[in-house]
Design a protein around this nucleic acid. Structure first.
Length: 218
DNA sequence: ACGAGTCTCACCGTTACTTCA
DNA sequence: CATGAAGTAACGGTGAGACTC
């Protein structure tokens, strides 16, 4: 529906304000974006305009100013997003590398364990008598350690001795680095399911500690 | 004190028109 | 010359706040 507009100014053939008028209005707008009624009347008199025209000019000016402001803010936010996205991508690559390394170490460790069992098992089969079953039973009845709380004399120390040889201290250091980390980044299970467009905050709350991955592969 | 009516003003969306590439 | 996009002055509708009765 088209509006029928009364355009008195058109009849006067003054569609646009003069450069002088615009200049004065701009100057006033720079000092205050909202005009007091008294100043509006005064400015209108000075510029030979109706107070209503001055009011509308300020209104339109505020709208233009606001949309420009929004555009600027939008550009800044877009740039920030791009920066964050590229930062995220490089972190993601770095993390993928670390996960691969973790997998590799895990496989190597498992291999070591199997080899160790085969080797030691053969020797002990002969040596073991009826006490073999007892010790096995003992092992079976041994209460399961709480998740993520292997004591130094338990399984972790066994792993460390077996895999790291005489470098238990280094192993401890490694464990300390890995353990406090966010589960989504250290759990290869969690990480593999990670998509670029997934909310990283949601991932971090996935509540899948890395030791679950660790113990599930043993 | 409180509610209804009125006025003024700013904002938003839109129109009509101009300018320019 | 025609045309479409961008810019601009102005309008109508609407809501909020101040004021009066």
């Amino acid at each position: 529906m088209k509006k029928i507009k009364k355009s008195s100014h058109n009849e006067k053939n003054q569609r646009r304000f003069s450069d002088e008028q615009i200049k004065s209005l701009e100057m006033m707008f720079e000092s205050e974006t909202r005009l007091e009624p008294r100043k509006k009347v005064q400015l209108a008199r000075e510029l030979s305009l109706q107070p209503r025209q001055v009011a509308i000019w300020f209104q339109n000016k505020r709208a233009r100013w606001k949309s420009k402001q929004l555009e600027t803010e939008f550009n800044i936010l877009t740039q920030n997003y791009k920066d964050l996205a590229s930062q995220f991508e490089s972190l993601k690559k770095e993390n993928q590398g670390l996960v691969s390394e973790l997998d590799r170490l895990n496989e190597a460790m498992q291999k070591k364990r199997v080899e160790g069992r085969e080797c030691c098992g053969d020797q002990t089969v002969v040596a073991l008598s009826s006490t073999d079953h007892e010790s096995e039973k003992e092992e079976n009845t041994k209460p399961e350690p709480e998740e993520g709380h292997h004591d130094d004399y338990g399984y972790n120390s066994h792993i460390k001795r077996e895999y790291f040889g005489g470098f238990e201290e280094e192993a401890d250091h490694l464990m300390n680095i890995v353990e406090p980390a966010d589960s989504c980044l250290t759990s290869s299970v969690g990480w593999r399911g990670f998509k670029t467009n997934t909310n990283i905050l949601d991932q971090s709350s996935s509540n899948y500690p890395w030791w679950h991955f660790w113990s599930s592969t043993i």
